[in-house]
């Protein structure tokens, strides 16, 4: 019966898909572990940087730095971090929705937005919407190196200090825990003026103002330290985004595998029912035939 053959075929197709999604789930899990460890490895640097900034700004007193002031330019920059590959559920859609909202709200405030789009998915989406992109980066691989992010940060800082843009935001998927990631728009420039105070409060209000020997002067050191912390913040956004991407893919592929399992179960049930119906019909035919002969 044609119906049965169709069912068998469909079940086979679903089984093949399940094989793929399960493999992708396993790969995403392994990748997630690796990137998560990388994310952890960036912690010591950023913590130390925060500590130095707070120590220095308390030593330098009232701090004024070009990176902390807001230029009056009518343009801002937005870095959007999306993935190069799909099959990761709502990951890209969520980030892009945030990005579009941000761009629109900036426009309402009378500011143009330079969009620096990272990832093929985002580039294609903006092309589809017909929204302009200042720069699209599609060739950033799965484990971005600091040396790849550094030039992006430096360029943005240059534009900011030259007064071409008045703010820099990053739209990315912030990683809070394995079960929680949230699309976020983070402001990285201008630097919050209370940067030092915040970090100082965090570093334990023990108030142990260390009597440092500075070389060169604290102001000059801070001059170097602040750009380093901006670079680090942007780098961390990238790392977090990658971790979130792998989590999203893991979850999406797990859901797909589960759905395939359910589908196989229901197809098997339908197939068995069709088979039984067929046998019963044949039996009825035979019995009918025998009865006719005897009659």
């Amino acid at each position: 019966m044609a119906n049965r053959r169709v069912l068998v075929k469909r079940r086979k197709a679903v089984r093949n898909i399940r094989k793929i999604t399960r493999t992708m789930q396993l790969i995403a899990t392994a990748r997630f572990q690796a990137t998560f460890n990388r994310a952890l490895a960036t912690k010591p640097y950023s913590e130390k940087l925060g500590e130095l900034v707070s120590d220095l700004s308390s030593a330098a007193g009232e701090t004024q730095h070009p990176l902390m002031e807001t230029p009056t330019a009518d343009k801002t920059a937005l870095v959007v971090i999306t993935s190069n590959r799909g099959l990761c559920g709502g990951y890209n859609a969520n980030v892009l929705r945030q990005a579009v909202q941000h761009i629109d709200s900036q426009k309402d405030a009378g500011k143009d937005v330079d969009v620096h789009m990272i990832g093929k998915k985002g580039v294609n989406y903006f092309k589809f919407l017909g929204r302009p992109i200042t720069r699209g980066i599609r060739d950033l691989n799965d484990d971005p190196q600091f040396s790849e992010i550094e030039p992006i940060a430096n360029e943005l800082m240059d534009q900011f200090v030259n007064g071409e843009i008045s703010a820099v935001h990053v739209a990315y998927m912030a990683f809070e825990s394995t079960s929680r990631q949230s699309p976020t728009v983070l402001q990285i420039l201008p630097l919050a003026a209370d940067l030092g105070d915040d970090a100082a409060a965090e570093a334990g209000g023990a108030g142990t103002a260390k009597e440092y020997e500075f070389s060169p002067e604290p102001e000059l050191l801070l001059d170097r330290l602040l750009p380093a912390s901006v670079r680090m913040r942007l780098f961390q956004c990238f790392i977090e985004a990658i971790v979130s991407e792998h989590v999203a893919r893991m979850v999406a592929m797990k859901a797909a595998t589960d759905a395939a399992n359910d589908m196989i179960k229901s197809l098997t049930r339908q197939y068995n029912r069709a088979r039984q119906t067929h046998i019963t019909m044949e039996l009825l035919d035979i019995i009918g035939g025998v009865n006719a002969l005897e009659g």
Binding site: L52, D55, L56, K210, E211, Y212, E213, F214, S215, P216, P218, L220, L221, R224
Partner: peptide
């Protein structure tokens, strides 16, 4: 035992 130092 070096005294606290912060340098570039």
């Amino acid at each position: 035992g070096r005294a606290p130092l912060l340098c570039q």
